[in-house]
Amino acid sequence: MMLFVLAVALWAALFALNLWLARPGAPSWAGVAVPILFGVALLVLWEATVRGFNVPRILLPAPSSIVATIFSSLPILFADFMQTVVKGALTGYLMGCSAALGVAILVDQVSFLRRGLLPIGNFVAALPIIGLAPILVMWFGFDWQSKAAVVVVMVFFPMLVNTVEGLMDTDKMQRDLIRTYGSSYWQGLIKLRFPAALPFIFNGLKIASTLALIGAIVAEFFGSPIMGMGFRISTAVGQLNLELVWSEILVAALVGTGSYGLLSLVEKRLTFWHPSQRGSS
């Protein structure tokens, strides 16, 4: 009990410090410090609660034991990361997104495709992944290929819809201007419409990066070799090894945040000219 009271006291102290840091006119490093302090306070509270009240580790393991598990099972976590993130999610993401880009250019040229394919796209995008994953596992086998296939299906249409929309996001005057230069279709695409579509494309890429991770992990629930993050989560729960489950969740969260952050960084570089980016620099 004493532990818990101490933790609450520490949490309150950090909370006060954060309030002070977040005041108007705070130095710039406060922007980084506030979320870190907030996270530390939460971890301390978590640790103290679990220890102080003797919460069973099956319900909620202490952060310290999760960290211990992470360090003792680094090889497993790394193998799962390679299997699920690199082979499954990343392969599927690259294939799905580049295919969507290519098809978007095709759709852009053939109006019949725009009217025919996009409604089907919306339909496929609405299919529940839980239903689709077992079928794709049957088709492509237990290994990462089926996971990549699930990811392709999940990322393809959001990416396609965003890109097609982006390619149409030029005004008539800009298209007329390019026309007065006697430019070809491809010149117009490269010089005008593709750059104009970039904010939309990055929107699609960011949505797809989140979907890819979910898809690759969930697809493993329906059959996989004896590794992978989804496989580990489902079997570790069965073995009541909740520390390992939490470790995998942490890895997934880091990967998700990292890839989203990386994409945002590249986006900022390439679309610095867009009003939404101009304001924040």
Binding site: D171, Q174, P195, L198, W273
Partner: peptide
Amino acid sequence: VFQHAGLFPW
């Protein structure tokens, strides 16, 4: 030359 400058912002 159009009514608006229409310079490409990028």
